[in-house]
């Protein structure tokens, strides 16, 4: 029994976000992503990993290319560092708590992203399997396109320290995009 229990606290805690950090509007949905483990992978021994601009699933892990020779690996939270090292080799550094996962989906999702980022999220330019590291309203984000879910769907990983600002920016962009419909 701990004398002074040290408990985890979400970055978007229910006492400050009683309705949740997300938002659902006609045509677009934004929510925190599911709990996951996340590591940074460099110089892997495994071959055939996705190249820059892409991500791919491999043995229950999502490998997201960040830069030449660097990936984020998303997988089950427990033991992600050891599991990734065992599967892919190379240098593995856990960053599970360094990022906060979000999901953005729906037909209006590209219009929302247009208000946050300079990238082209059109189907031909950012199809399922595409990934990018890009600033969104000055905040760094790793974004990847998932399989469609009632429209385009995106997974976003954003640094923990700015996650609240990021969530606010996305909600503001959603309201703007939806107000035109």
């Amino acid at each position: 029994m701990a004398d002074f229990p040290i408990l985890p606290r979400p970055v978007l805690p229910p006492d400050l976000y009683p309705q949740g950090a997300g938002l659902t509007l006609p045509g677009v949905r934004f929510a925190e992503g599911p709990a996951r483990g996340l590591v940074h992978l460099a110089r892997p021994s495994a071959a055939g990993l996705p190249g820059p601009g892409h991500w791919a699933e491999r043995d229950g892990f999502a490998l997201i290319a960040l830069a030449p020779g660097q990936w984020l690996v998303e997988g089950p939270e427990a033991g992600i560092e050891a599991a990734s090292a065992a599967r892919f080799g190379g240098f593995v550094t856990e960053v599970t708590d360094g990022y906060v996962p979000f999901r953005l989906s729906g037909p209006l999702a590209p219009a929302v992203l247009a208000r946050l980022s300079s990238l082209d999220y059109g189907d031909d330019f950012f199809p399922v399997g595409a990934a990018a590291r890009t600033p969104m309203m000055q905040i760094g984000v790793v974004i990847r396109r998932l399989s469609d879910d009632d429209g385009p769907a995106f997974a976003l990983e954003t640094p923990r320290s700015t996650a609240r600002d990021f969530a606010r920016d996305v909600r503001t962009a959603m309201i703007s995009a939806a107000s035109r419909e």
Binding site: P5, I6, P8, R9, T96, D97, G98, R160
Partner: peptide, 11 residues
């Protein structure tokens, strides 16, 4: 790990 930062301050 950052999720425990708040709890560690309390502790």
């Amino acid at each position: 790990p950052a999720r425990y930062g708040h709890g560690l301050a309390e502790a």
